[in-house]
Nucleic acid binder design. Sequence first.
DNA 1: CATGATATCTGACTTATGTCAGATAATTCG
DNA 2: CGAATTATCTGACATAAGTCAGATATCATG
Lengths: 290, 290
Amino acid sequence: MLDPVARVRRFNRAVTSEVGALDTSFLGRGRPLGAARVLNAIGHGRSDVADLRDYLALDSGLMSRLLRSLEEEGLVTTKPHSDDARRRIAKLTAAGRREFEAYETLSNAQAQSMIARHGQPDTLLAAMDMVAAALGRDRIAIEEVDPRGESARYCLNEYYAELSRRFSRGYDVALSRDPDALDMMAPRGAFFVALSDGLPLGCVGLKGTGRDDAEIKRLWAAPAARGLGLGRRLMDAAENAARRLSITRLRLDTNSALAEAQQLYRKTGWTEIERFNDDPYPDLFFEKRL
Amino acid sequence: MLDPVARVRRFNRAVTSEVGALDTSFLGRGRPLGAARVLNAIGHGRSDVADLRDYLALDSGLMSRLLRSLEEEGLVTTKPHSDDARRRIAKLTAAGRREFEAYETLSNAQAQSMIARHGQPDTLLAAMDMVAAALGRDRIAIEEVDPRGESARYCLNEYYAELSRRFSRGYDVALSRDPDALDMMAPRGAFFVALSDGLPLGCVGLKGTGRDDAEIKRLWAAPAARGLGLGRRLMDAAENAARRLSITRLRLDTNSALAEAQQLYRKTGWTEIERFNDDPYPDLFFEKRL
DNA sequence: CATGATATCTGACTTATGTCAGATAATTCG
DNA sequence: CGAATTATCTGACATAAGTCAGATATCATG
């Protein structure tokens, strides 16, 4: 009935006509959209004026005027940066924080009602995640993090949950050789997550031994982020980290049920090798020389 | 990691920052957004000025000025309506049509690139359909149509495809008693589709006999539209049509694999009855007295 | 400390958008 | 026909948003 292009454009129409409503949810509190956006950006922790200007894509003159109008309303104060007095730092006053909270409440209520009215909220949320990830694909950053930190733990839990869904016999972390976190941190290894606007969308671990070999572990991409080339970007990050650590031989194990992963390895220079551990879950083993 | 409200708001941020790009795709041709929107709305077949004003939510003064600026550019002509000379009809000139086509090409290219860059376009499109349907739920209209028409045939094909996916033994229309289209049209019956911005999202048939009984057939809601209460709205439309046709007894058959449908029937006053046909697919039979 | 670079602000201006009260012309209805 | 209603247009304004060329203060560097 509708070809792909028509479906995307239908989506665009749907969001633009609703997004009027999203954007103007910033309205209705007697303040132009520009000023409301600045107030909200400050409330969300952006304080550096240059950062604000960049994030909101505003001209410096306009930015300056918007800030001053918020100052005149008594919602914001600015003071010079302690290191560099040319730069200015904006902060919400108590009244400003109240205004910000009011906007937050509005936005949350709107989001809440969208979910509450829907009969299959989980499916809808998954769809929204996927669209958000696709739209924001150029803003997904690969960051090296502590594998014991919040974003890493979130990814690992999702990864385990997915394995237990996809393996016909289920998956139990306890039965698998759980890599010691210290092996996936400098100076022996590394751990990376892919972050999109605060949400972790994927991860990979480089588990070193302190010698010149290492293993790739825990490669995972969120279902919402499949098709964005995240797996490849994560693997690249891990390989580059390995090179920096003077590692020359990488190995990994995987399961033939994970077809996408296998395909990725074969396309990026990995070669299949014999089983090199007695972990019960993997049935496929790969190696790559750096 | 993120609660539902945070996920919706993340979606909102993703689309608003991209939708800037969507909306301003209307820019870059030296024309303010307002004028470009009017030109495009006319190009898409809205010609009545009042209709345009309503659709674009513009003040009548502003609308008038935008139209005049397009006329001065030689892109649009207006003439009085033939029935009512107070109303005005806007039409694109040849130059206007060329400009409109240029915008279309831009929009199509943008949509195309979004899909082309994605590794799982079908999943992404399904997600976009779902979000578009949820955002536009208040604009979904139930319309009575000819069951042999384009939108009805599209729904029926999707319906058959879904049955063959969901029935363990598959589904072959030829084996089922295919209702004669004439039985699903006035004066014996009716056929309804749910339309959202041009896309059919669901259907239902009321198959009459010319007497005071009838059957409900082909109740279907697109996967993207599940959870929006479409099934209920379609059934209501069919029941109301039945009442108008003085039908007092409705029956239907279904399969226990279609759990949502069964649940809907039980919640809306249908009672299970004995098998009343020898169709191979259904295994559950319901009746409702009007 | 002089010089150029940087971050922000100010003034002057343009364009886009939105609002509102009539004006104008056509239509409807008693 | 005449009064009320309706659709659109016009004029007069107001505000929002965006642009750009300096002005000002501060910083980095030789």
